[in-house]
Simulated scan of single mutants.
Amino acid sequence: MSRDRERQQSQLAFVASGNDIEVGDRGRLPLPADVLKNLRGDENFVVARLEGGLTAEVWRLKAAGREWTLKRARARCLVQNVDGQTSFLNEIQRRADIAALKALPGGRERFAGCVDTVWGCFREGLLLSPWIDGGAVADWDERRLVQLFALLEELILAGLFEWDLCPGNLLDDGAIRMFDFGYMYRFDPLTEFNSNGREAPLFHAAERFETRNYFAWLLELEFSAGIAAALAAFALEKRVAGACYERLVSRLAARGAAPEVLSWLRGFLDVWGKAQGETLADLYLAEGWRSHRLDLDDDLRGKTCTKRTLARCDWLIAAAREHFAALTGLDALFWHDEGLGREALIARLEADRARAERFQIK
């Protein structure tokens, strides 16, 4: 049985057990838990109900002289798969892990990018945090990239792998903040590539950011400023990611990491280091294909497609039409696309686009 399936079965067993898990201190709540559980939205302490939460309703509250973020688990998660259905449980578990990490010497500094938790309870479906007075990242400049990868580095070394670095899960208030941990899973960084063990070497921290976030931003940059601007931004991200991976190799080696793990990380550094000039455009095409394809597949599996999903699918169709020979020469096609001819690949992508149109969420 795969590590992924083992984790899913463990989470489902916990849900069925009737056991509960709490994190934080109920006594620190600015309002009684029953009040939070039964919010209607017209209360005078409700600042706003925020859109976009697939697992939980998200509220902005003002009470006890400050503002708060309340997550209230949806009765029915909008992500229609096991990971989505157990994501609120997973978030409570990870909040407990992060609170423990912050309690270690120097922990508050290393994990400052992870939001604090006031109190959360799985069975009551409530999770309260301080309000982050920031916004979504509109421009991934060097400062933001450095801060994100520094946080990912510390999480990896702590044995936590974040799968969903999507735009809605990261905020910037002068520093990059991560506040959603529904798809963050434990793993052993000394022996494993990610929370699937060594079964899926395709997935790593930089890939997760590129797939779930950065390449969608690069796509918008292509439209607004041209491919040269997108390539320059891509090169910047690779430099920042490369510096992070160099540190990871050194720090993991000092802790006795398996040679296979170190070799796997060095492999990315080798590829990125060779990508200059014209070959940078080749790497952009190959990793753009990987990122857009994986994100499309993820949205289709969860039936959580958006206009951005359609835009990414359109990029894939155009790439298949215009750069098929380059894609095959770069070994960019993978999984169910591998071995397909040009017309068969385009037909598959067009069918996927039709499904993405059916699975549009509000």
Rank of each mutant, 00 (worst) to 15 (best):
M1I: 11
S2H: 14
E6S: 10
Q8D: 10
S10T: 12
L12G: 05
L12N: 09
F14N: 04
A16S: 09
A16K: 04
G24L: 04
D25C: 10
R26G: 09
R28T: 08
P30A: 07
A33C: 01
N38E: 11
G41M: 10
G41H: 07
L50V: 08
G53I: 05
V58N: 11
A63L: 00
W68M: 03
W68A: 01
R72F: 01
R76K: 15
Q80A: 13
D83C: 07
Q85I: 03
T86C: 03
T86Y: 00
S87W: 02
F88D: 02
F88N: 02
D97C: 11
A100I: 03
A103S: 12
G106S: 05
E109W: 11
G113S: 06
C114N: 02
V118L: 08
R123Y: 02
E124L: 06
G125H: 01
L126D: 05
L128V: 04
L128Y: 00
L128N: 05
S129H: 15
P130E: 06
W131I: 03
D133A: 15
G134Y: 01
D139N: 14
D139G: 09
L148D: 02
A150M: 09
A150K: 08
L152R: 08
E154R: 08
L155P: 04
L155S: 01
L155I: 01
G159D: 04
G168M: 06
N169H: 10
N169R: 04
G174Q: 05
R177H: 08
G182Y: 02
M184N: 13
Y185P: 04
R186V: 08
F187I: 00
D188T: 08
L190F: 06
L190Y: 09
N196C: 13
P201M: 02
F203T: 11
A206W: 12
E207S: 12
L218P: 02
L219F: 12
E220Y: 12
L221P: 03
S224R: 15
S224M: 10
G242D: 00
G242I: 00
C244Q: 14
Y245N: 13
R247V: 08
L248V: 12
S250L: 14
A257P: 09
P259T: 00
E260I: 01
S263P: 11
W264S: 09
F268V: 11
V271M: 11
G273T: 05
E278I: 07
A281R: 15
D282M: 06
Y284E: 07
L285W: 01
R290T: 14
H292L: 13
D295W: 11
D298F: 12
D299M: 11
D299W: 02
L300C: 02
L300M: 04
R301T: 14
G302R: 09
T306S: 12
T306M: 05
K307R: 14
R308M: 14
A311I: 09
W315D: 08
A319P: 08
G329A: 05
L330P: 00
L333M: 09
D337K: 09
E338I: 13
E338K: 15
E343Q: 14
A347K: 00
A347S: 12
A351H: 13
R353G: 15
A356Q: 04
I361C: 10
K362N: 14
